[in-house]
Design a protein around this nucleic acid. Structure first.
Lengths: 255, 255
DNA sequence: AAGTGGTCTAGACCACGTT
DNA sequence: ACGTGGTCTAGACCACTTT
């Protein structure tokens, strides 16, 4: 017999603008997200089987399945038939392309080389405070790097992170690391980027960016402002990228 | 007892690179898409209830449900609890924002005004032939229009359509119409845009675009090349847009 | 009251991967 | 052989909308 009592401990207490109740599978989903957030299961690891989770949460396998289905659709989890369900990790090339949208106009996406130019401490600006979950003046880490495609610089990224979450992040650490930055964040600091919101604009290259990207001053660049979110939709990264689009383009799908 | 015979009429005939078999719910999904493509149910109309579809296809309601779930996730269908499942239509403002990604930096998205500058016949270029399902030299309709936000021009669109699908599309028809272009395509020509692929670049405004958008020559513009697809993934529109991003931005989500 | 989609369960069997 | 996720079914009940 279904037990719907769990469905809404405070049944129709939906105040003005307040949230309504949520179905069981969504509550299960939230519990799984909390476990991910706590680091109970690490990226790359398998989570318990559906039957185990069903027993743990005292629901049917079908309800767990629907919760996991949504988490897989959100790319928090990855299902592998016959093997199990795994926590998604940025150490898979597949994931990288979800967050790196610049692609060459012709040919295959060649491997990218990252060169860190700077890594220093600073204080959060008003804009950062609005975007992230910090207050103006809070400690931040600022990273500047250049991404190149087959030796040709294509992207300058200016990345800002709350120092509270990224203690011990230094230029040294970044030097000794190869692979996607989000992979480093994940393994070194336990911060997994799950999704991001971007705003794109066309701007003219100033002296600084022109020098870094080896293009003429005034060259049109694609400016990408990004806010990245981790589990439970907490914003944890503020980033501005400047992309050269002479032989590359930003690919996007409208669904 | 489940009848898996339907699952693969030609069981494991997966040649090299050939497709494997597909589950029942996916076959049902394809059948529904075919009905949509044939126009059996028009945009805005309700499709038969899940129980009716289950009877029609001789499967359980659960299998129909899974097929419809995916079609709703793909935005081909829209579910409304208590009312039924409806064919999605571009005559809903909600859908418009999936395809119009330029938003003002501040404030609410104001209504857009469209002004058609030109509508003429031409022949498909080699690039159009590669992108769409036409041959070089085939008849095309070329439309140029300007979109404005509160009177200020923000976008120039150059739109190319196979005349075979859009017979009778004239400047006159476009004049007498207000509302989203994709809404017109849907009701007047039975062509529903379902998804699109875009390539974004930053370019400098030349004399022509500068004049149309009332910006200085050389102003950085966001150039957006789009290929739109209708049901069953048939490409039916080739479009290049030039966006002013001084007070607007192209919004995007990475999931 | 009737009809629709939404949720939950229980059980069977298939496909895949490992032991 | 066994355990995993993947599919399919049947039935019950909830929530919303219309008659």
């Amino acid at each position: 017999m279904p037990d719907f009592s769990r469905r809404s401990e405070a049944p129709a207490a939906r105040g003005p603008g307040g949230a309504a109740f949520s179905p069981l599978y969504r509550q299960i989903k939230d519990l799984i997200v909390q476990s991910l957030d706590r680091g109970e299961w690490k990226p790359g690891e398998a989570i318990p089987s559906e039957l185990e989770l069903a027993a743990r949460f005292q629901v049917s396998q079908g309800t767990v399945r629907k919760a996991v289905d949504e988490l897989a659709a959100d790319h928090l989890l990855t299902r592998r038939q016959g093997k199990g369900t795994f926590v998604s990790t940025h150490h898979e090339p597949r994931v990288r392309f979800r967050f790196l949208r610049l692609a060459p106009d012709e040919g295959e996406p060649s491997p990218t080389e990252s060169r860190v130019l700077d890594c220093r401490r600073m204080r959060a600006t008003a804009e950062m405070a609005r975007s992230l979950d910090v207050r103006p003046g809070d400690g931040m880490v600022a990273i500047r790097r250049v991404l190149s495609f087959s030796g040709i610089p294509a992207i300058v990224d200016d990345i800002y992170l709350p120092v509270a979450l990224f203690k011990g992040l230094t230029g040294e650490l970044l030097e000794h690391y190869s692979g996607p930055l989000y992979g480093l964040f994940e393994t070194e600091f336990g911060v997994s980027m799950v999704r991001a919101e971007e705003k794109l604009r066309a701007v003219a290259a100033d002296d600084e960016y022109a020098g870094l990207l080896k293009v003429a001053v005034g060259t049109p660049l694609l400016r990408v402002d990004r806010i990245s979110y981790t589990y439970a939709d907490r914003p944890v990264e503020f980033r501005t990228g400047h992309y050269v689009t002479d032989h590359y383009h930003y690919r996007n799908s409208l669904n």
